[in-house]
Design a protein around this nucleic acid. Structure first.
Length: 579
DNA sequence: GCCGTTTTCGGCCCGACTGTTTTCAGTCG
């Protein structure tokens, strides 16, 4: 039976939380829905299946009531409470709450008293100066609301940009501020520091000999389009491509508190503070207040903040409220997260034989320069389409070409491989004899994304069971911020991969990072060997492994947890054909 | 609505800003 994806279940609970909030429910009840939605979105297993087994309350934040609602959604396709509330609150009401300064409470006031149920109705009322008649609203609000509507706010959620672009901007701003004469320490915080998939705004934390001068300097940078001063020690700006930037300057003695606070995530900080309260401590961006002594502890470093709370320092990539606090309290954090320099090989790349831009030799020499001991040349297979597929005869020629380059270049093992299409029935698109002649095979899905979860799962499990498919490439097909993952049971895929010794890659293309962090962590925990591959289509993108490594770090992986961080002698026998 | 090395009931992170308000609720990060 077709089940609801975790994303769909989480979206339904988020919507219900929003509706309850409009309905005036106590905020903690609303937050309970959002917390549960987040736990479900993050869950590495199928929550639908978990619910049917009667185990969904094992998820943190999901109790009896939410279990009942999830089961109603699975069984009937809707949640009765949501139906009821949807009938009372028009969908346009949620659009209103996306405008700055307009939350659920005030949107509800406008709806109740003026019948405003859409952005258009709001504009009409604001232009007609009708809003000022309502308690709590005035002429200023009418003006700002019209400005916001003119700017197109409210029509869609604020855009998020991919990490590489955000990090590039953030590091540039950080470095230019560091070069300013008033600057002392300057660090990038926020989701960019956590190396998240995408970033909404840039947070920069600094100490300075002259805070006002540094705050003013932000507005003078070339990348900045507009800026305003936000208090004596803060600046707010927008880059030319619309990315908001916040700068906060503090006393050196509080730098650790502020950096910790602004690195987040929100979930991490909330969990951290709740745990602190239980010990009589109150954590804020300014310090740690001790109930017992009445004193506030200021920390120069982040390590100091965590230490005062009885915790080991937590790498920013782990700060997502996914169990890192418990691990930091009991010595359960990874001793050392993997780094780019740990990689010894790259098992997924393309050449001019398919849609790459460089030759086998060029790719090999570039890989050698990166210090790799081995690479696999994995051009697209026979049915790729787009005019750049490799016929069986062409692949045989490619095998010889790889062997020739491999014999000629010292210091690196070049594997003749292929990125084969996994056909809808789960079979690869070369015959077994040809696959057996290769050194390495990645299986990927490039077509028929919409066949449904059951079929897709069967397809990918069959690929894992194939004797010559060594690894699964970009296993969910997601494109961050642009294409949802196709429906597939990650649990079943991971189980099949573990059972058959099939590796799963974290594809490092910056818009893929697929597997994602939570799935990669779950796959590793289930005994699957994880690869971090570039999927590069030219020498210049071999360095994309930086983004795959970011995801691996967010998956709590160390060097020993990533197969292609092994030396060739230990990696080679892990291939199916070598066993 | 969830949850429990004080609790099965009564809590649930913290602070700044805003516009409107005579002391603050709502919003935001």
């Amino acid at each position: 039976m077709p089940d609801y994806s975790n994303l769909a279940i989480a979206a339904a609970l988020d919507e219900l939380g929003d509706l309850y909030e409009l309905d005036g429910a106590v905020i903690h009840r609303v937050l309970a829905y959002r917390t549960a939605a987040r736990a479900i979105r993050d869950a590495p297993m199928s929550v639908g299946a978990l619910a049917r087994e009667g185990r969904v309350t094992e998820l943190p934040g999901v109790g009896r009531t939410l279990e009942e609602k999830i089961l109603a959604l699975l069984d009937t396709g809707s949640i009765p409470a949501a139906e009821k509330l949807r009938a009372r609150f028009p969908p346009g009401l949620m659009d209103l709450t996306r405008l700055p300064g307009l939350g659920p409470k005030r949107a509800r006031q406008l709806f109740d008293q003026l019948g405003i149920d859409s952005l258009d109705a709001l504009r009409e009322a604001a232009e007609g100066q009708q809003l000022r008649g309502i308690r709590g609203f005035g002429p200023k609000f009418e003006r700002t609301v019209i400005e916001a509507l003119d700017a197109g706010l409210g029509e869609q959620p604020a855009p998020r940009v991919l990490l590489p672009r955000a990090l590039g901007l953030g590091e540039q701003i950080r470095d230019e501020l560091r070069a300013h004469h008033a600057a002392d320490r300057v660090e990038l915080a926020g989701s960019a520091r956590r190396l998240a998939d995408s970033v909404k705004d840039l947070d920069i934390i600094a100490t300075a000999t002259d805070p006002a001068a540094l705050a003013a300097a932000l507005g003078e940078l070339d990348v900045i389009e507009s800026a305003s001063v936000a208090g004596p020690n803060a600046g707010r700006a927008r880059t030319h491509n619309g990315m908001p930037v916040d700068l906060r300057v503090v006393e050196p003695g509080q730098f650790g508190n502020l950096l910790q606070h602004f690195t987040g995530s929100a979930a991490h900080n909330v969990a951290l503070r709740e745990a602190a309260v239980r010990r009589g401590l109150h954590v804020s961006e300014y310090g740690i207040l001790d109930d017992a002594s009445g004193e506030t502890l200021h920390c120069e470093t982040e390590e100091g903040v965590y230490e005062r709370l009885g915790l080991a320092w937590i790498a920013p990539e782990l700060r997502e409220g996914r169990g890192e606090l418990a691990a930091a309290a009991n010595g359960g954090l990874p001793a050392r997260l993997i780094e780019v320099s740990d990689l010894r090989g790259d098992l997924h790349m393309h050449t001019t034989a398919s849609d790459g831009r460089n030759s086998i030799e060029q790719m090999a020499r570039a890989a050698l320069e990166r210090g790799y001991e081995y690479i696999a040349i994995t051009d697209h297979s026979a049915t790729h389409g787009f005019g750049n597929d490799v016929s069986p005869d062409e692949l045989r020629a490619q095998i010889e070409a790889v062997a020739e380059v491999n014999a000629r270049i010292e210091g690196i093992e070049i594997l003749a491989g292929s990125e084969v299409n996994i056909l809808p029935d789960g079979s690869p698109d070369y015959d077994d004899e040809l696959l057996a002649a290769l050194d390495w095979v990645i299986g990927s899905v490039h077509t028929s994304f919409g066949i449904g979860e059951a079929e897709m799962t069967k397809r990918m499990v069959a690929a894992c069971e194939h004797p010559y498919i060594d690894a699964i490439g970009h296993p969910t097909g997601r494109k961050i911020e642009s294409r949802a993952p196709y429906a597939v049971s990650i649990d079943a895929l991971v189980e099949a991969a573990a059972r058959t010794g099939t590796m799963i890659e974290i594809n490092s293309a910056p818009d893929r990072r697929d597997l994602n962090d939570v799935h990669a962590r779950a796959a590793h925990d289930a005994g699957v060997r994880i690869l971090v591959n570039s999927d590069s289509h030219g020498v210049s993108t071999l360095s994309n492994v930086r983004w795959g490594i970011a995801t691996a770090r967010r998956a709590w992986l160390g060097r020993d947890d990533v197969a292609n961080a092994l030396p060739w002698a230990r990696f080679a026998p892990l291939r199916k054909r070598a066993r």
